[in-house]
């Protein structure tokens, strides 16, 4: 097991290096001169060749491609991602750490909603298969899956904030502000996980060990929880685990709809302003997040399943 974990960690480190390289290449493939962008953003009245040259030298953009990558990588390891093109007085790392807590708060609250809603709903849908409850949930799941997050967000805004005047439409500052964006993000994941848990449980229900547990006269709820749900959740664990980085990276649209001052909103603003260092860090962060969570839940699944554990 320890050998397997070490192997997975080494592979993940290599993967993170690949992510950094792809991230660097993609940003440099954008067909515009960063030096010119910097001058435009700083509202330089006349952009001359000399000015572009000066900024190119100042930003180290005249170095060979691979040297630039190595320099950038070295700086990344020191958590030095440069300064924002829009506001040179602010560092990229500073901007990132300023907005990250809000995004994590939003993702975490969405994850809690996803877990609280999808596990019991999926469970009861499987237990009462084809009942009225199951049918209604299936219709709702179908409807929410086919609706993009921003549509759900706008509909919620219209209903809860505009018509019912229960919650604020946008911004941050308190518990009331986080409810609607969290629900909007959670909605898509809830429908996915309800289906996942329901179908997984229905598959497990057909297993012989469940039939045998019934013959032994075990309490039906005990069978449903300890034999069916437990085994289904272990199968769904990786999917649920991988939804955490998805939640963090997927807040981008919702943060803009609800004016939530998180990382996603910063990233969208940076895309519009062509603030490449921030976009670069955002891509890098999301990439590393996916690699890390993949590693963590892969190891957890190995620990949870005795069959895989003994194989490795």
């Amino acid at each position: 097991m320890i050998v397997y974990i070490i192997k997975r960690i080494l592979v993940s480190i290599l993967l993170i290096f690949a992510v950094t390289f792809i991230c660097f290449v993609f940003i440099n493939m954008i067909p515009s001169d960063p030096a010119e962008v910097v001058l435009r953003v700083r509202q330089t009245p006349i952009i001359t060749e000399e000015a572009i040259k000066e900024v190119t030298q100042a930003l180290g953009l005249d170095d060979p491609y691979f040297i630039r990558y190595l320099k950038w990588l070295r700086n990344c390891l020191r958590l030095d991602f440069g300064v924002s093109y829009i506001n040179p007085s602010r560092t990229v790392w500073g901007e990132f750490t300023r907005t990250l807590p809000d995004t994590i708060l939003l993702a975490l609250s969405s994850l809690i909603i996803v877990i609280i809603v999808s596990i019991p709903t999926g469970f009861f849908c499987a237990i009462f298969k084809d009942s009225l409850f199951d049918r209604v949930v299936r219709i709702l799941v179908f409807a929410t899956t086919s609706m993009p997050a921003y549509v759900v967000g706008l509909l919620l805004m219209w209903l809860i904030s505009y018509r019912l005047k229960l919650l604020p439409t946008s911004g941050s500052g308190g518990f009331r502000h986080i409810i609607m964006p969290s629900i909007t993000i959670a909605m898509t994941y809830i429908s996915t996980y309800i289906r996942l848990i329901r179908n997984n449980m229905l598959e497990n229900m057909k297993e012989d060990y469940v039939v045998y547990a019934k013959v032994r006269g075990l309490n039906p709820w005990r069978i449903s929880i300890f034999h069916i749900l437990k085994n289904s959740l272990q199968s769904c664990m990786v999917a649920i685990g991988m939804s955490i980085p998805q939640l963090i990276s997927g807040t981008m649209v919702v943060e803009n709809v609800f004016a939530w001052p998180g990382l996603g909103k910063l990233c969208i603003a940076s895309i519009f302003n062509r603030d490449y260092p921030i976009i670069q860090l955002y891509i890098l962060f999301v990439g590393i997040l996916f690699v890390l969570f993949n590693l963590i839940f892969d190891i957890l699944q190995h620990l949870a399943d005795p069959r895989i554990r003994s194989l490795s």
Partner: peptide, 27 residues
């Protein structure tokens, strides 16, 4: 009580022998 032909599928793969047997009488 019953003993099935397929012993592999009639036992919960995530339960150790201890739990498989104890579950029957501890209920």
């Amino acid at each position: 009580s019953v003993v099935f032909q397929d012993y592999t599928s009639s036992t919960n793969p995530r339960m150790p022998v201890r739990e498989i047997i104890a579950e029957s009488f501890s209920k």
